[in-house]
């Protein structure tokens, strides 16, 4: 007869709510999330170029919005999303050539993806704020 303890330790079927999130799963979701965010984020570059082509008045308005604290916050978020997705894409290319499939390699690539994106984003903005 199975007692309560044995019953509790039975494996559960994997499902989003009961699954202990492996870092690779988080990165998979983040790659899709950042891809979707970049999809709409393209409008930021589009608006900047279209305003520049329209003339000084339109360009000043866009510049003022992008330079406001809210604009800078959006641009900061956008830059992290872009860098995270870029590194995530490179991770996919590693797999595409047939490397990086072992458990430690997968986990390390995932951690490197997240850590690298945060470090590079902070460094980028530090460089911009210091030298521009």
């Amino acid at each position: 007869m199975a007692d309560a303890g044995a019953k509790a330790s039975r494996p559960l079927s994997p499902h989003l709510q009961v699954y202990r999130w492996p870092v690779t799963m988080l990165m998979s979701i983040l790659h899709r999330f950042t891809g979707g965010a970049l999809y709409f984020g393209t409008l930021l570059l589009a608006a900047w170029l279209i305003a520049a082509a329209s003339g000084p008045r339109a360009f000043e308005i866009v510049n003022a919005i992008y330079g406001s604290w809210f604009g800078l916050l959006v641009l900061f978020g956008y830059s992290w999303v872009l860098i995270h997705h870029l590194l995530g894409g490179l991770r996919h290319f590693v797999w595409d050539v047939g490397a990086g499939f072992s458990k430690p390699a997968r986990d390390n690539l995932a951690r490197l993806n997240l850590l690298g994106s945060i470090v590079l984003t902070v460094l980028l903005w530090a460089a911009v704020l210091l030298f521009r």
């Binding site: 570059l45 900047w48 520049a52 003339g55 000084p56 360009f59 000043e60 510049n63 992008y66 330079g67 830059s79 872009l82 870029l86 894409g89 490179l90 911009v128 521009r132």
Partner: peptide
């Protein structure tokens, strides 16, 4: 990957400059 890096550099260099 290649042209995002280049464009990012261009945009940062031009950000906030006059029209």
């Amino acid at each position: 990957a290649v042209f995002v890096v280049i464009t990012l550099g261009i945009v940062i260099a031009l950000a906030g400059r006059p029209h």
